[in-house]
Every structure is written in structure tokens, then in C-alpha cells.
Amino acid sequence: MINITVNGQHHDVDADPNMPLLWVIRDIIGLTGTKYGCGAAQCGACTVHLNGEAVRSCVTKINRAAGQNIVTIEGLSINNNHPLQLAWNEMNVPQCGYCQSGQLMSAAVLLRENLNPTDQDIDDAMSGNICRCGTYQRIRAAIHKAADIQREGAKI
């Protein structure tokens, strides 16, 4: 049994310690917001937070996550109201939407560490996440928007 905490909930998982976290989250715990895109840490669709870092769950063995805190897209906020989610909705970012869980989880780390990211910061943080629909321009705009929302929120 491997104990992991996902979105604040403890799970004792009976799985091959080599099984990537992605498949544990999707097939065993049953949270399907985290996506499989490449299985090789190339596309970022499977990005989750492991102790706050935007790890690619498709190459992260469950072993590494044992006893650690994991947050998936389902746990990014309670009411779809993370500044990034609000901005994503306002700017109509998703097209097919498949990569967006990963995009949001990556952007959340950027926004936590940099309250006012520049375009260069966004390039540096977000180029590990592929979007085949090509929503990059909107993701960029939405991150700027989310930074605004976050700052407004901080003032209140």
C-alpha cells in the first residue's frame, strides 16, 4: 500500500510502485481531469502539483509521491474560481480543452511565484505544455488577466 494525498484526501493505493502517478490518479483514484498526452514528459497534459511543483505525472512514479501532497485540476480551487480559472473563462481560452488542465496547473505555479509575469516569464513557464488547438495567445492573455485578478483580490 502506498499512501498519497490527492486534493487533501488520503488514499491508500495498492499499485505497482513503478506505476506512473498519472495512471494511479486516473484509473485507480478515478480523477480524470488529469490527461494522458504523450507518456514521455513532452506535452504537459498530465501536469499535477507535487508539493506545489508542476510535475509531469506520466513519468513520475507513484513511489515518488508516497506520503506527499498532490493537487490535480479538480483541486485547483473549490468553485472554479482560481484567478486563472476566472481568466480562462473570461478570455474563452479552451478549444478542445484537453490540454487545459495541464496548462492551468503549470500557470498556477508561475502565478504563485511571480505576481506580475512578463511575456518572457510566460514563455519560460508555459513552453512545456503543448496545445494542438493553438490557444497559446489566449493562454498568455489569460495569465496576464489572472495576475490582474490576483492583485485586485490581494487589495481586498
Binding site: V59, V109, D121, A125, G128
Partner: peptide, 29 residues
Amino acid sequence: TMNVKRGVDGKGLYAARCSNCHQAENTAG
């Protein structure tokens, strides 16, 4: 690829930290 950058500590930046993809050991394949 992926526009990965050094960062201050050499371990990458933001969502592109080295250890987000690179594990403690080689991933097979």
C-alpha cells in the same frame, strides 16, 4: 525543446523546473 531555462539556482523556472520531468533516476525508454 520546451524553452527550458536555467533559472537562478540552475534547476529551471516556474512550471519548467528540471525535476518536474527529470526524476531521481533515468526513466526507462
